[in-house]
Design a protein around this nucleic acid. Structure first.
Lengths: 225, 225
DNA sequence: GCTACCATACTTGTATGGTAGCATGGAATA
DNA sequence: TATTCCATGCTACCATACAAGTATGGTAGC
């Protein structure tokens, strides 16, 4: 469980780790990019030791692949793992939103509302990166409300592949309004306590993420396995 | 995703990591045990570097807690995370066994049969540790058959707390025959393709793991948060 | 021209010395 | 006697040096 906030080894190592992770997930460091320990150490102005520590953590999350004596690379996106992550999210989120319909702390409803409003702004401004973050935050809040944040954290580990695909997808096919409407309807269902409807919405919502990976792979062949 | 077999940093570090993990999950290293880098390095006859690497990995899985400048300890069992892990498994395994009823590769049925037979032997011999491993293997085979091994791997990360509780529980209340009967019935349902029945069985099966954590905590107060 | 070999420049893996922060216990003080 | 302060020894953290394996380019031989 990589709860960053709970095991903060301090400064240097943690900083390198979180920076690299951010860049990898956002595709600023595209899949396949070579990362040498020495080079990265020079870049961050630290020694190889904390860099190595961060590489170990990233490898454990499947974000990089370490080939002994050969090099370290940003992992390629595995289409099978993309679908598997989506499958996993569907099962867990359907269960969670059912819970949310029965017991959701009222003090977390305003944050969800604010999030929705921010999504609306993002759609207007065509800000796909921010929209992605808000989407993540919306779902995270659902888990938080059901006291299942540990589950969300574990999901994140698997999401390395799915998220990178989704970023590519969101950049190409900006059908954000459908996502937004889903979110809006889900929140309404939670307020109404309609678990069956909420689950159905979540199911449809996450099936939108059954991306046409083949299409993405065609557009970015070097990014995939 | 900590697929040990896929990112093997080689010998020393990986050996320390897997050995410590084994000992922690089996409670040979009880929750709360202090682990110093230097001490562990001496024990394994390696330098502190690979030990440190293994500590980082174990911390990421929640098996140890690193307190900067203070020490490293085997993590205490968090009852909330125990239930959360069980919840997560229930959702995923119910979905997986439904899949298994529709598409399970026939060549994986014999291994399941052999596993069941081994379970019978374990029950006869009152071998709780082996029984625990066989139970894990049984469920892993289900995921393997549905091509969802990545999901199983991620589950394992969350299982650190649940598994340790289950080991305590299995040692106390050896109602293994019920587990065995569940496994047997599940396999029969898969053969028959009866998804509804299989899911119901799995649901009941995993609800057995709603352990009386309070009881365990009373028996081993120092092991829990 | 083609192939096999080898020197070299990389890579990650490991060992070790030094640094900063924290806990503990004893001594000095009120 | 109770309390504060400080020295000491512990810890993890980081930097550096060395070891070992790998890819590559040039060269000698065929």
């Amino acid at each position: 469980m990589a709860t960053d906030s709970r095991y903060p080894p301090l400064a240097a190592g943690a900083l390198v780790y979180s920076t690299l992770k951010e860049q990898i997930v956002s595709l600023a460091l595209p899949p396949g990019t070579s990362l040498s320990e020495k080079e990265t150490a020079l870049l961050f102005q630290v020694s190889r030791t904390p860099v190595r520590e961060s590489f170990v953590r990233l490898a454990q999350e499947g974000l990089v692949v370490v080939l002994p004596q050969r090099g370290t690379r940003v992992s390629l996106i595995d289409p099978e793992l993309v679908e598997e992550a989506r499958f996993m999210r569907e099962q867990l989120e359907r269960a969670v939103i059912r819970l949310a319909c029965k017991q959701f702390p009222p003090e977390l409803l305003p944050p969800l509302e604010e999030n929705l409003e921010a999504q609306r702004v993002c759609i207007r401004d065509h800000n796909s990166k921010q929209m992605f973050k808000l989407d993540e935050e919306f779902h995270r809040l659902l888990f938080a409300g059901c006291r299942k944040l540990g589950t969300w954290t574990v999901i994140q580990q698997m999401n390395a592949h799915l998220n990178r695909s989704r970023i590519l997808w969101l950049a190409n096919d900006p059908d954000w309004s459908k996502l937004f409407e889903h979110h809006r309807a889900m929140l309404a269902a939670i307020r109404a306590g309609d678990a069956d409807h909420a689950e159905l919405l979540m199911k449809e919502h996450l099936r939108l993420a059954i991306l046409d990976v083949a299409m993405l792979k065609e557009a970015h062949p070097s990014y995939f396995v």
